[in-house]
Nucleic acid binder design. Structure first.
Length: 300
DNA sequence: GCATGTCAAGTTGTG
DNA sequence: CACAACTTGACATGC
């Protein structure tokens, strides 16, 4: 069975997530900062719970949680821990409620740290910040029961193999909480499935296969082959395969196919996926409307 | 009220 | 060399 996933946000539903900036925080004293952050984190925790209830109602089987659920938590100046927040205990209870709900309703949860998390960087400070961010997301993942923290391999710096080597070395140094969840995804600029598979196999890192990125940044593998080889990296660790799909905003014919369309063209969904058991995140601008429409089209 | 510029972080590719 | 694209809104500011 295919299980479809929604990424982070809703279009028509009333679920919202708040944030704040370091700049805004820097104008108020620490106690008011923590009060403000507490309100935002509580709001976001409650809306995570509402998000899970909503995807369950819509028949959606997976949800990607936005990285800044607790905004600026790892920032060197503005950073904080839940213990620092007036509503810290309430927030923890809400997260636990969400964990149980997701478990009960079998909603698979994931995280996707953004482009600033780069384990292959030659700059020690960049790697250190990336690790800190991964530790933060692993802490969150643990409290809500998310099994995937998915990242890209990062930059090339003129030598792909050297960069992948650095990635491997840093990977070995990560905490178990991060390593149990970390996955690698092929991107649309630098690293193809073929580039990543050896690294994945060496370290037992599951490969999240993004077929849209593969079509924008191809290698010698056909979609069917890449799907199979990626599936094997999940079988090794005894977990359900994870894939991503999107459709190009302005078609495949001309211009740049990378920007995402509002909805998924069912023709872009590989035929060889249909009979498989896996999670497929829908990366489409119309958010839950796109997931619901695709599921309806496949049934009809 | 509403419009608009801004927001922690990295890397690549384009103009 | 500067800047947009990744992905994307929500916030803060200013009219």
């Amino acid at each position: 069975m295919l299980r479809f996933g929604l990424c982070c946000l809703f279009k028509d539903e009333t679920v919202t997530f708040r944030t704040t900036t370091v700049k805004a925080l820097s104008t108020i004293p620490r106690d008011r900062q923590l009060l403000k952050l507490s309100e935002i984190c509580l709001h976001n925790s409650c809306n995570l719970q509402r998000a899970l209830e909503t995807v369950h109602r819509l028949g959606i089987g997976a949800f990607r949680i936005m990285s800044p659920l607790f905004p600026r938590m790892t920032h060197p100046e503005a950073g904080y821990s839940l213990d620092d927040l007036p509503d810290g205990e309430t927030i923890s209870r809400v997260l636990e409620k969400s964990r149980l709900f997701a478990l009960q309703q079998q909603i698979r949860l994931s995280f996707h740290p953004d482009q600033f998390v780069v384990l292959s960087s030659p700059h020690a400070a960049v790697v250190a910040n990336s690790i800190q961010e991964l530790e933060y997301q692993a802490m969150l993942a643990e409290s809500v029961g998310a099994d995937v923290i998915n990242i890209h391999a990062g930059g090339v710096y003129g030598d792909k193999q050297a960069a992948l080597q650095r990635f491997g070395a840093v990977y070995q140094s990560l905490s178990e909480s991060v390593r149990l969840r970390l996955t690698l995804e092929n991107d649309d600029v630098s690293y193809t499935p073929e580039d990543l598979l050896p690294l994945c196999e060496d370290h037992n890192i599951p490969l999240v296969y993004d077929v849209h990125h593969h079509r924008c940044n191809p290698d010698t593998l056909a979609v069917e082959e890449a799907t199979e080889l990626a599936a094997a990296t999940w079988q090794t660790v005894g977990r359900e395969q994870y894939c991503h799909i999107s459709s190009p905003k302005s078609g495949w014919a001309d211009g740049n196919p990378k920007p995402h369309a509002d909805y998924i063209d069912p023709l872009d969904l590989p035929d060889c996926w249909l009979e498989r058991t896996m999670t497929v995140d829908i990366e489409a601008k119309a958010k839950e409307l796109a997931v619901v429409r695709l599921m309806k089209e496949l049934r009809g």
